[in-house]
Design a protein around this nucleic acid. Structure first.
Lengths: 271, 271
DNA sequence: CTAAATTTGTTCGTATGTATC
DNA sequence: TGATACATACGAACAAATTTA
């Protein structure tokens, strides 16, 4: 049976409101397909209908939905009922509504698998998009305490710092800084700037293989630099990803910190 | 040598400003330890000094730093110079400043390793903290399309939905919803509510082992519910973690979506 | 609830040393 | 050498957020 609710100990309001089902009943309807008294709530039927249209491609990413008043009319329900359906879709990340602008189908996030062999270019290519690494700048500096610790070199050792933006089909996905042992990778930055691919730049310098040792993830609101470089709206979140890559023999190759436009990627870890 | 800069193609401003060093020169100083003309910029010296005090425990998590005016005076520098040092520490996540309130040493985030055997209680215990799962509510409902797909059951199959908050030492860490096949796990919610541990509740029902199959991660600004349940400041980010756990034989056991207070955890993936 | 005080955040201006062309 | 750009550092004032009286 559906609808058995057991709610305990929630001082204040019940957190289960989102999923409550009602056996609403109208009269003889058949307005625009929503079946009253079918055992399935109206808002669920509407949400499912819209979800199908999005997944089937009738409603394409970026498309604007009709205004709520119009939608509620075509479905033959109250605007509140329609809004509940939209709220459900918004929670799932399928649509996004902005007051005064309208409701839009969101671009599907780039599935970004993280694993021992994570390579940006391969991930993006696998998604049928065109990867590009835009070189921003580089410099040789003395390893500060945390970089020295991660790269397992003495503090003050010269390290090569590279900043870059990663794009997929011209849309900025992430931006970040990576540090490399300078002794091992002299002029990596020049090669990277020329090729736009770290994997290829490393290969040019004789490093054919490396693997991810650790990935650490946090998130926070985007700062000014991220807003600018990733074309984000103020207040949006970024995923901050710290990573350590090592050569096959275990020697640290690069440590870096990147900011990902959180609503354009979904990091995926398979166990 | 330190300071070799190779900056290209950055229309506008230079992204490498943070790391440039200058050989500034003052006079015969010795004010409060900052050495003018030592080859290291004043703000770097200050940043490093404060970082040491934080790491050594002189400045404990949650401690409030002296106000900028006072700090700049004790270091014998202009307030701008001090602020540059603070900005560096804030970027590293060591401190956090709020207008009107002050500057505080941040609590180190809970390292939250994600792997095939991720168990909330074990993670928190390993960090020397006391884990607690607070049961919020549950209900039996018909599987909606996405839950059905993830749990590999037909749409409409009864599933048990459980909402809960996870705390470490009483501080809310995450809050989320998980769906379980109801047929297999009748009354799981009651046992969970009683024990406060999902692992133990599952064991009680005869499920001794399970493993993580996939973890998907995005992030976004916290919504009203998250702000309330996780005691977040508006505008803060949450990490949204979708996970699928399966039994040893590969049968889906639970699928869920949780929101983590992004500034209280750091998800760690080891390859 | 309002007003004042406190504290961080932002912007303008000035000057100086260093690196680059 | 000179011109230019850039990073550092100091000074003053004001804006915005928060706490306190």
């Amino acid at each position: 049976m559906s609808g058995t609710s057991r709610s305990l100990s929630t001082k204040g309001h019940n957190p289960m409101t989102e999923a409550t089902q009602t056996k609403a009943d109208g009269g003889a309807s058949g307005h625009e397909g929503v079946a009253r008294g079918s055992g399935v709530t109206l808002w669920r039927q509407i949400a499912q209908r819209l979800e199908e249209e999005i997944h089937s491609g009738v409603l394409k990413p970026g498309a604007r939905l009709p205004v709520e008043a119009e939608l509620s009319e075509t479905f033959g329900v109250n605007r509140h009922t329609l809004r509940r359906a939209l709220a459900h879709l918004a929670e799932q990340g399928l649509i996004e509504a902005t007051a005064g602008r309208g409701t839009f189908v969101k671009e599907p996030p780039l599935r970004y698998p993280i694993g021992a062999r994570t390579r940006f270019s391969e991930i993006v290519s696998a998604g049928g998009r065109e990867p590009f690494g835009r070189f921003l700048g580089s410099k040789v500096e003395d390893a500060c305490p945390d970089v020295a610790r991660e790269l397992a070199v003495p503090e003050g050792t010269p390290v090569l710092r590279i900043e870059s933006i990663h794009e997929a089909d011209g849309v900025p996905i992430s931006f970040g800084t990576a540090w490399f042992p300078h002794a091992r990778l002299r002029d990596l930055d020049l090669v990277y700037a020329a090729t736009g691919s770290l994997t290829r730049a490393l290969a040019t310098l004789g490093i054919e293989d490396y693997r991810r040792r650790e990935t650490r993830i946090t998130a926070r609101p985007a700062n000014g630099r991220e807003i600018e470089l990733l074309s984000l709206a103020p207040g949006r979140a970024v995923l901050v990803l710290e990573r350590l890559d090592v050569e096959p023999n275990g020697v640290p190759l690069q440590w870096g910190r990147s900011s990902f436009a959180a609503d354009r990627v979904q990091l995926v870890f398979k166990a």
